[in-house]
Deep mutational scan, measured.
Amino acid sequence: MASQGTKRSYEQMETDGERQNATEIRASVGKMIDGIGRFYIQMCTELKLSDYEGRLIQNSLTIERMVLSAFDERRNKYLEEHPSAGKDPKKTGGPIYKRVDRKWMRELVLYDKEEIRRIWRQANNGDDATAGLTHMMIWHSNLNDTTYQRTRALVRTGMDPRMCSLMQGSTLPRRSGAAGAAVKGVGTMVMELIRMIKRGINDRNFWRGENGRKTRSAYERMCNILKGKFQTAAQRAMMDQVRESRNPGNAEIEDLIFLARSALILRGSVAHKSCLPACVYGPAVASGYDFEKEGYSLVGIDPFKLLQNSQVYSLIRPNENPAHKSQLVWMACNSAAFEDLRVLSFIRGTKVSPRGKLSTRGVQIASNENMDAMESSTLELRSRYWAIRTRSGGNTNQQRASAGQISVQPAFSVQRNLPFDKPTIMAAFTGNTEGRTSDMRAEIIRMMEGAKPEEMSFQGRGVFELSDERAANPIVPSFDMSNEGSYFFGDNAEEYDN
């Protein structure tokens, strides 16, 4: 993207840094990872977990959730003011799984939030270390993106479920800051804005008074975040219109849905970061690795190297396929839920299948599930090659597409044709070009129609051997075009429920 120079890199967003050079960025990201790792080690000690239990991804998720809940100030305040039966607002906890007599047992633990905050700050040299908290939120978000298709949420806001490739980060909490905003897809931002506008339509006082002023500035800020994701002048001009509207209503909703559809071809720039579970960072720190000293990046080879040398386990339900569970977590670790499966298959070195073909449910185990038949197995999170994460949407291309997802959002900077089903997408653009945004709409449609099938995206960008740390010898991959490109292809993934 041309304006790259004016933006802070995501590592800076990730670490609240002012302008830093590459070495400083690597050190501050490393410091953040160190903090998460030290916190995780301490929690495993508190909970008396064995090494194996500490490497269980379900335990990692519970521990991450506990610290996120302990620092969720708004919710904590709300819980104190609106006490609900049987919930102690000062405590947080969740299921911890232990191996007892050759069987997995679930144990519900409860801790004072104050105590968890103390352990977290102690692991982070006394700081609140917001960057580390956001990092864990993005890992949870990436896992949700890989596990669930947001059909219901899309339909509720009037969008087409086939636009799911635009929904990265749709389950990120509001408090995820600049680093969170960077990884949100165009569809996620559109959905947040539509929800806001709908509230304004239904509630006369939404934009009024002292609160209304705050609401208005939040609305304009979200519009600017979305505008910054678009790469064409016409899309940005249309966002200006939406932002400046005196009284946002149905016309703005129409414009936003139009823009979301246009992003299936004229893709937005959305950041991709490899955020790993805390149970990967903990053992690495415990083994003596100093992330701050060595430096770390979320968008280069580092996460690949770390996963190459990590042992992570997962509980497996009786009829689940461990290899499929591994694929789910591998995609989440690489922030690749909406990437082209052919690119992923090449990088991973084994075939990556669409969601609907995987015999696996989510990673988390519900409290009512029976533990008797639970097994555990090693997650295979290694890769054959590594590639640089991208934040450009890439230019655009036609490809055989599917009944489910009709476009992709690249996660890796790797040369390819970008699949999208042009006739299906263009069919949504018939007729409606009147109104105050008509010239911009016409211009956007013209650009979409001009998108050429034979153009290559990320020209000359390749993948790298894991021994090639400096990215000196790019390998331009070859793809098996007979395979499906979309992950949520004609899909039956479970729906995400809060």
Rank of each mutant, 00 (worst) to 15 (best):
R204Y: 10
D145C: 06
F412K: 09
E220T: 13
M238P: 01
Y281W: 11
T433F: 13
G435L: 04
E210T: 05
P248H: 08
R416E: 09
P423G: 15
A181F: 15
Q42F: 05
F39H: 00
E64K: 07
E465N: 01
R152K: 14
M448W: 03
C275I: 14
G17P: 15
S392P: 03
E443Q: 13
F39L: 03
S478D: 00
Q20P: 15
S262L: 03
G362I: 06
F304C: 12
R461Q: 12
D468K: 08
N59Q: 04
G435Q: 05
R416A: 03
K113S: 11
L328C: 02
V414M: 15
D240C: 01
A278Q: 03
L344P: 03
Y111C: 02
E115N: 08
T433A: 08
R261T: 05
R174C: 03
I475F: 07
N205F: 03
Q327V: 11
G212V: 03
V190I: 14
F489R: 00
A451T: 01
E494H: 12
L166K: 01
L256I: 04
E18Y: 10
Q364L: 12
R65G: 11
V352E: 08
K90P: 00
E375H: 12
E81L: 08
S310Y: 15
G126K: 13
G169T: 09
R470D: 01
I257E: 06
S3G: 03
G54H: 14
S457M: 01
G282D: 10
R118Y: 08
G169K: 12
A263N: 12
N124D: 10
S392A: 14
D72S: 08
A153H: 11
V408H: 08
S176F: 07
L110E: 03
Y52I: 03
F412S: 02
P283I: 12
T157R: 01
S3H: 13
V363A: 14
K103A: 14
A442T: 15
F412Y: 13
G126I: 05
M222L: 03
Q399H: 13
S383V: 14
G158S: 14
S60T: 14
G435C: 05
F458K: 01
M456D: 00
F258S: 06
I316A: 04
N368Q: 13
R156H: 11
R19W: 03
R99A: 13
L110Q: 03
T396Q: 12
S413M: 05
G490I: 01
S402Q: 14
G450I: 13
F489D: 07
D127C: 05
N370Y: 04
R195G: 05
H82P: 00
G212C: 08
I41K: 01
C279G: 12
G37E: 14
A387W: 04
D372M: 10
S287I: 10
D480Q: 12
D51T: 15
F291L: 12
Y487E: 01
A366L: 02
S245H: 01
D127H: 12
S359V: 14
G5Q: 00
V67S: 11
F71L: 10
L154I: 15
T23F: 08
G485C: 13
M1V: 09
A286C: 08
M426V: 15
L108H: 10
F71I: 04
S335H: 06
E14A: 00
E80Y: 13
M189G: 10
E64V: 12
E46R: 11
Q399F: 13
A332D: 08
E380M: 04
Y296Q: 07
A251L: 15
P89V: 13
H140R: 08
H324P: 09
M440T: 04
M163S: 04
C333Q: 06
L306R: 14
D203W: 06
T130V: 15
A233H: 10
Q327C: 03
S287W: 12
I41W: 10
F338I: 07
H272Y: 11
T390R: 02
N224H: 12
D421M: 12
S392M: 05
V352P: 08
L341V: 14
L47Q: 04
R243S: 05
A387N: 04
M13E: 08
G394C: 01
T360N: 09
R75G: 07
S383H: 02
V408D: 03
R213Q: 08
R150N: 08
A263F: 01
M331C: 07
G158W: 07
E454G: 14
C44K: 15
A427W: 00
A471E: 06
R118F: 06
F39S: 07
G17Y: 00
N370V: 10
H272E: 09
R174A: 00
M189Y: 11
R118N: 06
T23Y: 06
K98A: 06
G30E: 07
P95A: 15
L264M: 15
R382A: 04
V242H: 05
E369N: 04
F429K: 01
G93M: 11
L166V: 02
T157E: 00
A237Q: 12
E434K: 12
L381I: 08
S359C: 12
A428F: 14
G30V: 04
E80W: 07
K452M: 05
E53T: 09
Y148C: 09
G37R: 08
E320K: 11
G288F: 12
G177H: 08
A271W: 08
R102I: 03
A179M: 07
V67H: 10
S438R: 00
F230K: 07
R416K: 13
V109D: 06
D34K: 04
S69C: 11
G185S: 09
S50I: 00
R55W: 02
D101I: 09
F258K: 09
K184P: 07
S274K: 04
V312I: 15
S245K: 01
Y52W: 07
K7V: 02
R162A: 08
Q364P: 03
Q58W: 08
T151F: 04
S376R: 01
S335L: 06
F338M: 12
F429E: 01
E449F: 02
F206Y: 13
Y111F: 15
S170W: 10
P410D: 00
G300V: 07
V312D: 03
G169M: 08
Y289Q: 05
K293T: 11
R121V: 10
A387D: 07
S478R: 11
M159E: 03
K48L: 08
P423W: 00
T92F: 08
D145K: 07
E210A: 02
K87C: 10
Q149T: 06
T390I: 08
K103C: 12
L256G: 09
L226V: 12
Q459T: 11
N144D: 06
S326R: 13
L418A: 02
D51G: 14
E369S: 08
G460K: 14
T92R: 06
R384G: 07
L358I: 12
E115R: 09
K87E: 10
S326F: 10
E292P: 14
V299G: 03
A251S: 06
E81F: 13
R38Q: 12
R384N: 13
P410N: 02
F458M: 07
A70I: 07
P283G: 15
S269Q: 09
G228T: 13
I347S: 06
E484C: 00
I444P: 04
V67Y: 09
F71T: 06
L341N: 06
G288A: 13
E18L: 13
Y97W: 06
L298A: 01
R355H: 09
G362A: 10
S245Q: 04
S69V: 03
H135I: 05
Q20M: 03
Q4T: 11
G404T: 11
I425F: 02
A178K: 12
R400G: 08
E455Q: 15
R355Q: 11
I257G: 07
Y111R: 00
R99W: 04
A271V: 08
R216E: 09
S345V: 02
D203N: 10
E11V: 13
G54P: 08
D127K: 10
L306V: 10
V280I: 15
D127L: 14
L172E: 03
R117L: 13
E320Q: 07
K184R: 07
E73D: 08
R208K: 14
K293Y: 12
K452C: 04
I225N: 13
T350G: 15
V280C: 13
Q231F: 01
G462L: 14
A260K: 03
I475N: 01
I201M: 12
D468R: 00
K357T: 07
E320P: 03
A218E: 02
Q241S: 05
E292A: 11
R195T: 11
P419W: 01
T146L: 02
T146W: 01
D112S: 09
D480F: 12
D16S: 03
F346D: 02
D372K: 11
A366H: 08
G450Y: 14
W386C: 08
A366Y: 05
N498F: 02
P283T: 14
I33S: 04
E254Q: 14
T130A: 11
D51R: 11
E192Y: 12
G187Q: 03
R102W: 15
S377V: 14
L133W: 04
R102K: 14
S383C: 13
T378Q: 06
K103T: 11
R216G: 05
S353V: 11
L79V: 12
